[in-house]
């Protein structure tokens, strides 16, 4: 491991055995440095065959039951890899996959040099934020048309490159046999991420998102998903109360 930061021990072992140790003649992967941490994963800048790459590792969560923990980490890794692959086939920008190791919950993918949409919104013009929301809307609709829901469509999971290209990331919660409910939840999640963190702009940006969405599935398709979102939002609150009243 060159230019090494101290790697968490299990990761270090895996990388050495899986990549540099056996069979592979090339130094395929080198880890450069820690990039940050998401809610689930640790991320490292890396080079894969010389390309700038990101290694995403879902480390064990000590608060989880160990058996359940390995199951979740493996499933999420597989789900993410499959969904990225399918999204890219649809022409949606998402980081290219370089290497996937579900047993160790590792994905190596293309490095996208850009800014999180969440952080960009307060720093950019509303027109630019609107354009991006619109692109996200088209991506969501394209996925939904193919029966895929992103599963965690927040402003933290969109990267915007310097040239303006919009990338979706973090597909670990994707649903690949999405029904109307799953699609509605996707849109609900996006809307709520606007409402909570960007409350002063959310109406405008949601409108932009829906315009993008409608450009793919038509206004009837957009209306259908909005109706679903409304239904989802009315549910879940005081279920007990309603149930009790019915008695």
């Amino acid at each position: 491991m060159e230019e090494g930061v101290a790697l968490p021990e299990p990761l270090d072992k895996v990388i050495r055995v899986k990549l540099s140790g056996v069979e592979l003649p090339l130094q395929l992967l080198s880890l450069v440095k820690i990039m940050g941490r998401g809610a689930e994963a640790l991320l490292y800048y890396a080079r894969f065959l010389g390309y700038p790459a990101v290694l995403k590792w879902r480390p064990p969560k000590t608060y989880r039951h160990p058996r359940f923990d390995s199951y979740v980490r493996r499933e999420r890794t597989l789900t993410e890899a499959r969904a990225i692959y399918r999204a890219r086939k649809l022409g949606i920008r998402a980081p290219a996959l370089f290497f996937v190791d579900p047993d160790n919950a590792i994905i190596v993918m293309e490095y996208v040099e850009g800014m999180l949409y969440r952080d960009l919104i307060p720093r950019t013009e509303i027109d630019e934020s609107c354009r991006i929301a619109r692109v996200i809307g088209t991506y969501a609709a394209m996925l939904h048309q193919e029966g895929i829901a992103h599963g965690d469509l927040t402003t933290s999971n969109v990267l915007v490159k310097g040239d303006g290209d919009v990338y979706l990331i973090d597909f670990g919660l994707a649903v690949t046999s999405a029904d109307d409910e799953d699609k509605g939840i996707d849109v609900h999640i996006f809307l709520r991420s606007l409402e909570s963190a960007h409350y002063h702009l959310y109406e405008k940006l949601f409108d932009c998102f829906i315009k993008g969405y409608a450009s793919i599935v038509g206004s009837s398709g957009a209306e259908r998903v909005i109706a679903k979102v409304r239904e989802i939002r009315l549910r879940g609150r005081y279920v007990e109360e309603r149930r009790a009243r019915k008695r």
Binding site: I185, R192, E195, A197, R235, G236, V239
Partner: peptide
């Protein structure tokens, strides 16, 4: 601001 919630029943419920 609400960042997350239950989509159906509450944990205590």
């Amino acid at each position: 601001r609400v960042f997350g919630e239950t989509l159906d029943i509450a944990l205590g419920n």
